[in-house]
């Protein structure tokens, strides 16, 4: 689980970096952003499946909260891309940046919940 989370968080961090560059240069974000977002989503989908499998394998984790985080983190980037799509300027790019920063934060919380349960 740890490795998947690190990979997803790194991809999301890279996405944030690309968004910052686009913000600073005041350029419209393009393919790199969408490709990185898609890649992150693929890893997060694996993260969801592995997380649910681990959950069914036992552990004292509160199931609803944990699955809530697993699903929630998967929805952040699609929501950000959708909300940003109608705003083809810095405002939209900043939405992508925000989403890319929320993902690692949620992954950290997911990790903490799992670790706190001693699983």
């Amino acid at each position: 689980m740890g490795l998947i989370q690190v990979v997803a968080a790194s991809l999301s961090g890279l996405l944030a970096l690309v968004a910052v560059v686009a913000l600073v240069r005041d350029r419209l974000y393009g393919k790199p952003v969408l490709m990185l977002a898609t890649l992150t989503e693929v890893v997060l989908a694996v993260h969801l499946v592995v997380g649910i499998l681990q959950l069914s394998g036992g552990g004292g984790v509160s199931g609803a909260t944990y699955v809530g985080y697993l699903v929630g983190v998967l929805l952040v980037l699609p929501a950000a891309v959708w909300w940003a799509a109608a705003e083809r300027n810095r405002g939209g790019t900043a939405v992508i940046l925000l989403g890319a920063l929320v993902v690692p934060f949620l992954l950290l919380r997911t990790h903490d919940i799992w670790a706190a349960a001693g699983a």
């Binding site: 509160s62 929630g72 940003a84 810095r90 405002g91 939405v95």
Partner: peptide, 28 residues
């Protein structure tokens, strides 16, 4: 619109996280 779109996104993050947090607190 514009920066407002970013502001809505920030508010949405707070709305979702506080709804999640408070519903867990109040329900459990």
């Amino acid at each position: 619109r514009g920066i407002g779109r970013t502001l809505v996104a920030v508010y949405a993050v707070f709305a979702l996280s506080s709804v999640g947090r408070s519903s867990v607190q109040l329900l459990t």
